[in-house]
Design a protein around this nucleic acid. Structure first.
Lengths: 230, 230
DNA sequence: TGCATTTAAATAACGGTGTTAATTAAAATA
DNA sequence: TATTTTAATTAACACCGTTATTTAAATGCA
């Protein structure tokens, strides 16, 4: 049978045809993700509907299951870029300041403002689906069992977010230069993180207006950083 | 029936019979709320199902609509006691300490620990359905328009939670006694609140273990309170 | 007491969700 | 060209909140 079309087809008739199919597959996959991204931005996590994503690109809901395991995985991949953008934004803020105090302040400000400017994403990352962040942190090398275990047992040595690590680094640096008191840098970093997260999350809730929160962030950061000093 | 049993039933045959009916209604209503409460504790906000509440007490889902406007109202009434318990707990903590510094510290500790001990409730109150809190704060005197407006516009002079008011009071007292620096007591209170809320909410997320958060709360509170001092 | 009215509750149904199994049709392979 | 693989669909399931309609019992009144 193969002989009828081309005897030398042994080389790679499969590869070529398969390659074409895979491009198309990737295109549809990307199209799904694009639609999902719009869907998430418009309706946030609570209103994110797999069926609407499908309808948006003119496919049936079941088609999505060919490209993604389930709704969770679709959403995970949908916000992947957002997660990365968060890391980049925070990293850049850290790079702009050599002085630990200034760097901590910039990290806090940037974290806070990123949250306000990316409300749906921030809520998802830190308030609604923090498990996404954990899975991410476990990396691709982790087995399914490790992931499941990490989700079931959030205690133990926790997996740390980039922003956390940058805080720790700045604090350690401040300790080395004598600007900050000695002590558990991770503990200090987590306390700082918790405070800024608290103000950010309240600013994204009906309990505090973003503007009111903005009027508080600098003073709060100053107080917290002063608390690190001798 | 009323006439057959007593001709003088004119006095209040309606009242008596109606009273009996109303007691039964109240009993069923209470039974629904009891089932809903169990449901909420077992499945939290995300998994709270009206149909399961109905099934739990052996009624059809539609019956619930005779006693409650919709799922939201059922849930609101279900957690009413929890909200009140939160207020009482915080109030008691405040009453135990006359010194503003100590009172602030106790308020923070108690708030934090209440959150950890009542995870589903705390998440609902401050993370998932803060609008419940707002409606509550608007009180029974508010019109529907006022409530709708308050929800749509969370800016403006915000309605304050009991815990917030207690913080403000303690800070104002500390300023009067000269223990704290002069300044906007509300702003200082909100910053304090945001920080404690941040640690509490992280402790209720997979991103930070409750025990780790517990190891941070006292130091954090000390730092924040010291930030109020001259 | 008998009849009419009110009303508590149930049934049936609508539109929505995520998801799985079975089916169609088109493309890839031999 | 015939066979196999596979992308996509249709049909279905089990949920969800909610509304309109119907049943049946309790109540009101002559």
């Amino acid at each position: 049978m193969a002989t009828s079309t081309s005897p030398i087809a042994i080389i790679r008739p499969r590869k070529k045809s398969r390659a074409r199919g895979e491009v198309e597959k990737l295109e549809l996959r990307a199209s799904i993700l694009r639609a999902a991204s719009e869907e998430f931005l418009e309706h946030s996590y609570e209103g994110f509907s797999l069926r609407r994503v499908a309808e948006r690109i003119g496919y049936t809901p079941t088609t999505i299951y060919i490209y993604f395991k389930d709704k969770d995985q679709l959403l995970r991949e949908t916000v992947r870029d957002g997660f990365a953008a968060f890391d980049v934004t925070i990293q850049n803020a850290a790079l702009k300041h050599t002085d630990p105090r200034e760097r901590l302040h910039a990290l806090g400000q940037t974290y806070f403002e990123f949250g306000l400017q990316n409300a749906a994403l921030y809520r998802l990352m830190f308030m609604q689906r923090a498990d996404f962040l954990l899975l991410r942190l476990l990396g691709s090398g982790a087995t399914e069992e490790m992931r499941a275990a990490a989700l079931l047992d959030p205690s133990g040595a926790p997996h740390r977010v980039v922003a956390q690590d940058l805080l720790v680094a700045a604090i350690k640096e401040g300790i080395e230069t004598g600007q900050f008191l000695e002590g558990d840098a991770i503990a200090k970093a987590d306390a700082l993180w918790a405070s800024v997260h608290g103000l950010t999350s309240l600013a994204l809730s009906p309990l505090m207006s973003p503007d009111h929160a903005r009027s508080l962030i600098d003073q709060l950061l100053e107080n917290l950083i002063r608390g690190l000093e001798p």
